[in-house]
């Protein structure tokens, strides 16, 4: 002790400054998902094309679940990334058409292209509530057993893809190869 205690205010100041500095770069819109490491909630719905669809129709491999809507402008921003992913066959993408109207959703897919294996139609947002969705776009990374492993809120562009999804997907694929 002795001399050391005169440094306490300085140490305290820097600790607080560091904490607040970090706080500046946290995104308050990015809420932690409660569904990480939990299976996709059970659903019995139709696709946007009117086909009945349940959990058993989901791909039996690592895939993306993308929440979108024809009214959602950021969805258009991330759309080219999903188009590329589906054209290059990098990973299957399943859509959740969240709180949309069927004809608008179909029109949107026709105009902009359809990167989805299929889109689950969640007209009243009930499936979205089970997923803990609070607005499109959101993207979930799901493993081969249908368990949610990662969630990204807002636009998934090429940067997010390369920095967040590629490493996570590599890990999941290595895991399921074992």
């Amino acid at each position: 002790m002795g001399r050391v205690k005169y440094f306490f205010p300085v140490i305290g100041f820097f600790a607080l400054a560091l904490l607040l500095w970090r706080g500046l770069y946290l995104d308050p819109k990015e809420l932690p998902s409660m569904l990480i490491d939990k299976p996709i909630p059970a659903f019995e719905l139709n696709t946007v094309d009117g086909e009945p669809v349940t959990n058993t129709d989901l791909p039996g491999q690592v895939f993306l679940l993308n929440v979108w809507g024809s009214y959602c402008l950021p969805c258009l921003v991330e759309h080219p990334t999903f188009m590329r992913l589906s054209e290059e066959g990098e990973i299957p993408v399943v859509g959740v058409n969240y709180k949309d109207e069927t004809n608008l959703a179909q029109g949107w897919l026709e105009t902009n292209g359809n990167p989805f294996a299929f889109s689950i139609e969640d007209g009243n947002g009930r499936f979205g509530i089970d997923l803990g969705v609070y607005g499109a776009p959101e993207t979930y990374l799901v493993d081969a057993n249908g368990v949610i492993r990662y969630r990204h809120v807002s636009v998934l562009d090429e940067t997010v893809w390369a920095e967040e999804f590629l490493p996570a997907i590599a890990e999941l694929r290595a895991e399921s190869a074992q």
């Binding site: 308050p28 819109k29 809420l31 709180k99 947002g125 009930r126 509530i129 969705v133 609070y134 607005g135």
Partner: peptide, 23 residues
């Protein structure tokens, strides 16, 4: 309301708030 973060479900007109009120 999870979307419009500084209001409760009563005061929010956001889509998800509407759904949650219904639930």
């Amino acid at each position: 309301c999870p979307m419009c973060q500084n209001t409760n479900l009563t005061g929010s007109s956001g889509g998800v708030a509407e759904d949650l009120r219904r639930e």
